[in-house]
């Protein structure tokens, strides 16, 4: 146990503490990944399969067949008892506990079977019906657009104004700089959650309730972003700025031709953070956007959630589509994200 808690490691052969460590980590993989994978798999199940209890791990689809004389494809069952035992039949309809079936080679002859005597013929397959329905029946594209618009525009605004402020705070000695820094620290102490009521009223007076701008603008200036960028810009030598001044560059040009490109790593971190904040944002949009045509994906997901009857089929598909962009971003930029979140405290 003691060895297990220290940095000392197994030499050539694996120590028992190493086995324990790997066991814990594999357990971690199951607990952390499992639920999300389960949800993703479930989203590819048919409505019927979703009703199946106890649930099965993989998505199954019942075999169907087109039988002459019937309009739609009929579900295929295997008979387990009676005269037809072992044969595959197509079910025409079901009345109570009795199923009317036909044999595919004798489509004219209806046979009655107790439903307990037949078993559906199934194979593993991904059903895309939930996704199709999402696009057909719900305004999914509108929610997607709302979320994307808010995320992209808000991040762009945040990057520009935060980097401008960070530039001023890191590269100019002016009267009042200390006060401004104190104000920025002050805003760090006042999270949105404690000014919800007055913030709502201010945004309402500006006519931005039920407008995407009402979500974008209030959070565009982030103290975290100013800090992060300022800290990075402090490491850019002042001599480079002086060199640019000797080279006839205006201060604005120094900002966008010298400072911005040189701060690219920090800007990338802030961009990723901002994209995450905005895409996942919930409480403020919940307050500021009350009409469903302005809903973001998060709000739409939440509105699907009924107290007792939840349309899980659509909800699962939509959840997967909502987490997909974040997973994609994460897969490509894992290193940036981890360091970014670790250095800023995530907020």
């Amino acid at each position: 146990m003691a060895n297990f808690l220290t940095r000392t490691r197994g030499k050539e052969r694996l120590h028992w503490t190493d086995w324990l460590s790997y066991a814990y980590l594999l357990f971690g993989v199951v607990v952390m990944f499992g639920p999300v994978l389960w949800l993703a798999l479930s989203s590819f199940k048919t409505e019927a399969e979703l009703q199946h209890y106890p649930p099965r791990l993989l998505p199954y689809i019942q075999k169907t067949e087109k039988i002459p004389g019937y309009d739609s494809a009929l579900p295929i069952f295997k008979v387990t008892k009676g005269a037809l035992a072992g044969q595959e039949v197509a079910q025409v309809r079901r009345i109570g506990l009795v199923a009317q079936v036909v044999r595919p080679d004798e489509p004219g002859k209806l046979v009655k079977l107790p439903i307990a005597d037949r078993k559906p013929v199934e194979h593993v397959a991904l059903a895309t019906s939930n996704y199709v329905k999402l696009f057909k029946r719900f305004d999914f594209l509108r929610f997607l657009w709302n979320s994307t618009f808010i995320t992209v525009v808000a991040t762009a605004i945040t990057l520009v104004i935060n980097s401008m402020a960070a530039f001023a705070l890191s590269k100019y000695a002016f009267r009042g700089r200390g006060t401004v820094m104190a104000l920025v620290i002050g805003t760090l102490m006042i999270p949105q959650t404690v000014v919800l009521v007055p913030l709502f009223l201010v945004v309402r007076d500006l006519g931005m309730i039920n407008s995407l701008w009402g979500v974008i603008i209030p959070g565009a200036a982030t103290p975290t972003g100013v800090f992060l960028l300022r800290q990075y810009m402090l490491t850019i030598p002042d001599e480079i700025l002086d060199a640019a001044r000797m080279d006839n560059a205006s201060e604005w040009k120094i900002y966008w031709r010298i400072i911005l490109p040189l701060s690219a790593p920090a800007i990338a971190v802030l961009a990723i953070l901002s994209i995450m904040w905005r895409w996942n944002d919930f409480l403020w949009p919940l307050i500021a956007l009350t009409q469903s045509k302005f809903f973001t994906l998060q709000l739409a997901l939440n509105s699907f959630r009924g107290e007792f009857n939840t349309d899980w089929a659509s909800l699962l598909a939509m959840t997967v589509l909502t987490l997909l962009p974040i997973v994609a971003v994460f897969a490509f930029l894992q290193k940036y994200i981890a360091t970014g979140i670790a250095t800023t405290g995530g907020k």
């Binding site: 520009v160 104004i161 935060n162 401008m164 402020a165 530039f167 001023a168 705070l169 100019y172 000695a173 002016f174 700089r177 401004v180 104000l183 920025v184 002050g186 805003t187 006042i190 404690v194 000014v195 009521v197 007055p198 913030l199 009223l201 201010v202 945004v203 603008i217 209030p218 959070g219 565009a220 200036a221 103290p223 100013v226 201060e251 900002y255």
Partner: peptide, 29 residues
């Protein structure tokens, strides 16, 4: 030197409008 305030203006305006003003209003409400 005064240019610093131009660079700060958009950020400070948003802080003022959406953080500091609400803090004051919070007490009023």
């Amino acid at each position: 030197r005064r240019l610093a305030w131009v660079f700060l203006a958009p950020n400070l305006a948003l802080f003022g409008l959406f953080v500091f003003l609400p803090v004051i209003l919070n007490f009023a409400y």
